[in-house]
Design a protein around this nucleic acid. Sequence first.
DNA 1: GTTTTACGTCAGCGTTGTTGACTTTCCAAG
DNA 2: CTTGGAAAGTCAACAACGCTGACGTAAAAC
Lengths: 170, 170
Amino acid sequence: MVETGASAVQSGEGLLFLTDEQLRKGIEAMFFAYRAFTADPDRILAEHDYGRAHHRAIHFINRQPGLTVSNLLTMLGVTKQSLNRVLRTLVEDGLVEARVGRRDKRERHLHLTERGQALERELSDAQRARMRLAYRAAGPAAVAGFRQVLEAMMDPDLRQFYQSMREGVA
Amino acid sequence: MVETGASAVQSGEGLLFLTDEQLRKGIEAMFFAYRAFTADPDRILAEHDYGRAHHRAIHFINRQPGLTVSNLLTMLGVTKQSLNRVLRTLVEDGLVEARVGRRDKRERHLHLTERGQALERELSDAQRARMRLAYRAAGPAAVAGFRQVLEAMMDPDLRQFYQSMREGVA
DNA sequence: GTTTTACGTCAGCGTTGTTGACTTTCCAAG
DNA sequence: CTTGGAAAGTCAACAACGCTGACGTAAAAC
């Protein structure tokens, strides 16, 4: 066992938010919220015969047009075989274009086609709509806290990635 | 398309936190944080030849000892066939006990055995440890906001479940 | 010129989700 | 007391999406 019991309370600092029960509620909140978070895109993807893996690829290709396969690999944290299967179908279906690198011809630079962008918009509109409602309901202060806690949960290297994603969308 | 462009900004209310870019960052934060959130349990589960599905079952059985299979089904949001496969291995391996209902003998009331409790503790200690660090780093105000936004994201019926989970652990 | 890197691909496997069909058990209402 | 339907379990088949391992090609790097 790592740490058991209401360790935070025992510290006597009045850190009620660090009770095991509070932590447990946070864990469950993550579970249920993530379910909701993926529900809308999942519905749309099912209509197009795609899955979550396709969504993730599309999202990051849209976010950083021209990123290479290995970049994407690092961000998604899957094997190249797994990603390749997904990427191949997206290229075959004409949603993604893989351009050979000009400086380094081994690289493939990924871009969304118009059809790819259309699906991306459909997916992210749905996801943003839910997010917007949640943000609006909770208010700006809550949103700041939300982002702070999520960021603190990430592994350091993934946090780097997250923070370094440029703010503009091109 | 549902809503495109920086709709919130156009409302002129100064709701900067509702920009598409802010929403996008929230979406990515969810993605990366959830990865981290499941990483520690996943490692432990792999050692025991179990998967995330087992973890989820164990979590909720521990949380509400004696809950029925259909209760669990509703909370997890999977089919009974899918849950049954998981539950069967847990019962076979002696981590979960399925007691026939006394009032309604069709029901199976689920309980963790000692070995089940041991694994639950191992898993949730790891998960809580990460959560505790994140909470501590972000502070109580951020934690409150974190919970508020997650709660607002949930579908109403799942939010009901989430809120109604009793605070004690029995 | 050899090694390393980036990418693609084939084969095989495991977990976890799905649908559909069917049985058994049992409560409850007619 | 019979019957309808809910709760639970099971079998079969399938799909998405992870994984490992092995292999091939092209190009960059040393």
